[in-house]
Nucleic acid binder design. Structure first.
Lengths: 152, 152
DNA sequence: AAGTTAATTAATAATCATTATAGTATATTT
DNA sequence: AAATATACTATAATGATTATTAATTAACTT
């Protein structure tokens, strides 16, 4: 597997950012890492680990699930991703975005985003109020989605 | 085990509420259920399932873990509790309370509560804005706590 | 107070997301 | 282009949670 690490001009802004951050911290830039990150950026549905695995496997048939887990932890560690723990102990991932709320169904695990000026202001205000540094640009709130509510 | 179900005057407000809700939905009022709920109300540390099991077992030595899981799911279903999925896929539980934020350390799983007038107003406002019915009176936000941050 | 129904217990096994291990491959440095 | 440190892969292990029994116990109804 050949990666032209010295010429990153063909990559997207986000991927370039990842490459720089990996280099900066002494981690290696591998095609698996880039592909996993790109897939999460492209997928707006807050994919699960397994979904990411399935999708990236199409491009790299030998990809192992362990690598996906390892990469997701690494990217979370360097704060490019946040892990969302939903129902059934299944993790989902999302990249940093504009301030929003993740409304998480406790039954099926579906996540819907909600944005508003109020949310944005509140998050900014909160970051000022709190001494503790927060991760990401979102907070989470629980619901039972319409679909699940109908089914009882 | 004798429970004077017709005289609930000696119970706390919260326990009375539980008893009423169980009756209303046709579930039986058992001392285990009351004890588990009371323990969660008394423990402000958002206990894990195993911690609840350990503590309530002191009062009911024959208590089984299965009962604890079953009861917690039941109380969550009737919306007296919310399940918090933290790190390592371990569930913690908390009762409905005044509006607050659970600031959850993604490393060690520790949860610290945060309350303010802003939080309260925002949550009220949010419930008006959203069509979806929310569970509980809190939302969750991620951090790495001071202790973990120091340890790297 | 007896009958009915549901809950609890116990012991075990199954599930399934996640983590650990160890050998092989590859990115990066020189 | 070789050296070396890290990453990747495959497999096995872990561990919280669920499921399955079946027997016992206890709550609730009339």
């Amino acid at each position: 597997m050949i990666l032209l690490t010295r010429n990153i001009t063909s990559y997207s802004m986000d991927t370039k950012k990842l490459i720089e951050m990996l280099r900066e911290k002494g981690f290696k830039v591998t095609p698996q890492r880039l592909a996993i990150y790109e897939k999460i950026l492209a997928n707006k549905e807050h994919p699960t680990v397994d979904q990411i695995y399935q999708e990236v496997q199409k491009k790299f048939p030998t990809l192992s699930l362990t690598t996906v887990y390892h990469t997701l932890h690494l990217l979370t560690k360097i704060e490019l991703l946040q892990e969302l723990r939903c129902n059934n102990g299944v993790s989902r991932y999302e990249p940093d975005k504009t301030p929003h709320i993740n409304i998480i169904c406790q039954n099926c695990g579906a996540i819907s985003d909600y944005q508003s000026k109020n949310v944005e202001n509140f998050l900014l205000q909160l970051k000022k109020e709190l001494k503790t540094k927060l991760l990401g640009n979102h907070f989470e709130i629980q619901t039972i989605c319409e679909k699940c509510r109908k089914q009882g």
